[in-house]
Computed example of a mutant assay.
Amino acid sequence: MVTSIILINTERGYINEVAETLAGMSEISEVYSVSGAYDLIAVARVKTNDDLSTLVTRNLLKIENILHTETMLAFQVFSKHDLEAMFSLGAS
């Protein structure tokens, strides 16, 4: 599984609308509204780097009111939770 963190700036007044659109995407596991330089942080979990490329360069471009994104690829997870097992439940 490929995990990435996507930092997002939106048009003023559209944070909630963009967040709801992102949260409805199967590749996005979490969306946070945050303080600081960015408006939203989305956590994406996909099977391959090609899937991540499609998500960022095609699917996110279709969402109106996103001004800028910065995508960071996660190398290693440090968590008490077995995220791989959690996200593979019911997967075929």
Rank of each mutant, 00 (worst) to 15 (best):
E27W: 00
E27V: 00
E84A: 08
V77H: 15
I41Y: 01
F78G: 08
E17G: 00
E64Q: 12
E30L: 09
S88C: 07
T57C: 13
G13E: 01
M1I: 12
D50F: 09
K80M: 11
H81M: 11
S53Y: 15
K80C: 07
R45S: 03
H68D: 14
Y32L: 09
V18F: 03
A19T: 04
T57A: 14
M1E: 10
E17V: 01
E30Y: 13
D50Q: 12
R58W: 11
F87Y: 08
K62Y: 08
E64Y: 08
L83D: 04
V34S: 07
I63E: 00
T69M: 07
K80Y: 10
M86S: 06
S79H: 07
I28Y: 01
S33R: 07
I15F: 05
Y14H: 13
L73N: 12
M25P: 02
A42E: 01
V56K: 09
L52C: 06
L60W: 05
Y14C: 07
E17H: 03
V56W: 08
E27I: 01
G90A: 05
L7R: 11
F78A: 10
S53I: 13
V46E: 00
S29P: 06
V56P: 04
S53K: 15
Y14V: 04
I5V: 10
D50T: 11
D50N: 08
G36C: 10
N59H: 10
N9Q: 14
R45N: 06
S79M: 05
Y32E: 06
A85S: 07
T54S: 13
N65V: 01
G36F: 12
L40I: 09
E20S: 14
I15K: 13
R58L: 14
N16P: 06
V2L: 06
L52Q: 08
E70A: 13
S4D: 12
L83W: 09
F75C: 12
G24V: 05
D39K: 01
S4T: 15
K47F: 07
L40V: 08
K62R: 15
I28T: 01
D39F: 00
S88W: 05
I41R: 02
L22T: 02
G24K: 04
I28G: 01
I63M: 02
L67N: 15
N16K: 15
Q76Y: 15
L52N: 07
A19R: 02
S35P: 09
A91T: 07
T48R: 01
I28D: 00
E11W: 06
Y32D: 04
E17L: 00
V2A: 07
L60S: 05
S4N: 11
I6S: 01
N9S: 11
L89A: 13
V56T: 15
V46P: 01
E30M: 12
N65P: 05
N65S: 05
N65D: 03
V46S: 02
A74H: 03
F75A: 15
T71V: 13
A91K: 10
L60P: 06
E84H: 06
L89C: 07
I66W: 04
G24T: 05
L67Y: 13
R58P: 08
A44P: 02
V31H: 00
S29H: 12
S92G: 14
V46D: 00
T10R: 04
G13D: 00
F78S: 11
E70R: 13
N59A: 10
Y32C: 10
S4A: 15
E30D: 14
S35M: 13
L40G: 04
V43Y: 04
L60V: 07
M86T: 06
N65L: 05
T21H: 12
I41A: 02
D50I: 10
A23K: 11
T71Y: 12
